[in-house]
Design a protein around this nucleic acid. Structure first.
Lengths: 209, 209
DNA sequence: TCAATATATGAAGGATCATTCATCTTTGGG
DNA sequence: CCCAAAGATGAATGATCCTTCATATATTGA
């Protein structure tokens, strides 16, 4: 995610020695842990530092403030998700519409639910964070990835591919989050996921796929 | 929303005189205002009281603590949304599948986006709030409302209506939220809404509607 | 009109937190 | 081996907040 972060959210300095690289990693990990175990209103710089096994001061060497830490964390996470979806899309170039939809739904769903507590924690950390730039960049990346995939379909000819594409993504991303947040039994989650894929496929077919 | 709130979130006492009814209303309104103008991390009991034109002490006569206030606020809001969707569903008993889907998508979409800043503010207020009971109750109400509507269709016979119904709701609710949060231009929002209705309709048709 | 009850006040207590900075320790290239 | 730069420390500061309670005012039914 190379969205230029809002000025004030820039990291303070980059780790140069192996020691500090480890420190920064520990801080990220600790942030997730605290978020998970204590919730966002108990996510304290001191607590994070403590769990990371460093002192508060150290944290402030790399992040100018708490928000910057959370920003960086979200950036990292979205990057992982984006990469996985992109890879899944690339793998389907020239494939059938059916394979494309299946791959897209599966890739996104898994990326989000594999470590669902972490995902949940990050959703929470993002509230009240100026991360519009992050979300935008993510959306654009996903848009480009799926668009390229759809265009490579040998048997498809969409009337308005932009609209079809943005709809597809909105529906998939939205549904995943909704199911995810309702914390339904996993059997039901799986069933819905299948239905979703079916629904998207018939939508694409009807739209020229 | 009659979900028994977690014990600790119960309101402290009910307003009995006209005066205090007005006070409670003012507090609700003020909470939304503060949430809107200042964000959740500046949502302070003092600030809310100030904006409501009462003293902090007064707030604590009706809400045992901040969380209880936010809980009550969300309860109120979800109630409004639920009522509107229920009414929309009731109005379509016996109608065509097409009319049903259109009505459902429109009702929910409008309920959420009509005062979109308020919706956004409430989404934020709900984070880090023990409102699972609220969400569950809301989901159940919606489930019942749409299920009754679908069953009343003269021309439909769904293989597994439970799954179809829960999928439909997940997709609609999820998509609305996704589009909503991405803050797309309203022309595009409208276009996606139309696509969504189309998509749901073809899904229902294919499922036996 | 007059208690009894309901409602409102807001200063003060107690707690938590984000952030800084003077000081100390470690690292790695020469 | 040495030292300049990098990294780490954590007590202290200043600010903000939630919540309480002793006190004051308003309302209502009799």
């Amino acid at each position: 995610m190379q969205a230029a972060p809002p000025q004030h959210l820039n990291p303070r300095k980059r780790p140069r020695q192996a020691r500090s690289v480890a420190t920064v990693e520990a801080i990220f990990e600790a942030t997730i842990q605290v978020l998970l175990r204590e919730g966002i209103h108990r996510l304290t710089t001191t607590r994070v530092a403590e769990r990371a096994g460093v002192s508060v001061g150290t944290m402030y060497q790399y992040f100018p403030h708490k928000q910057a830490l959370l920003y960086a964390l979200n950036e990292h996470y979205l990057d992982l998700v984006a990469e996985r979806v992109e890879a899944a899309c690339r793998a389907q170039y020239g494939a059938s519409t059916e394979a494309m939809v299946e791959a897209l739904v599966t890739a996104y769903w898994q990326a989000k639910t594999e470590r669902s507590e972490v995902t949940r924690a990050l959703y929470r950390s993002a509230v009240e964070l100026d991360n519009e730039a992050l979300i935008d960049a993510f959306a654009k990346r996903m848009d480009a990835a799926t668009m390229a995939m759809l265009k490579s379909a040998p048997d498809a000819d969409y009337a308005s591919i932009d609209l079809v594409n943005v709809t597809l993504l909105s529906v998939i991303f939205g549904t995943v989050r909704n199911v995810f947040e309702r914390n339904l039994p996993s059997a039901q989650q799986l069933a819905i996921r299948r239905q979703l894929a079916t629904m998207c496929l018939s939508y694409l077919k009807a739209s020229g796929g």
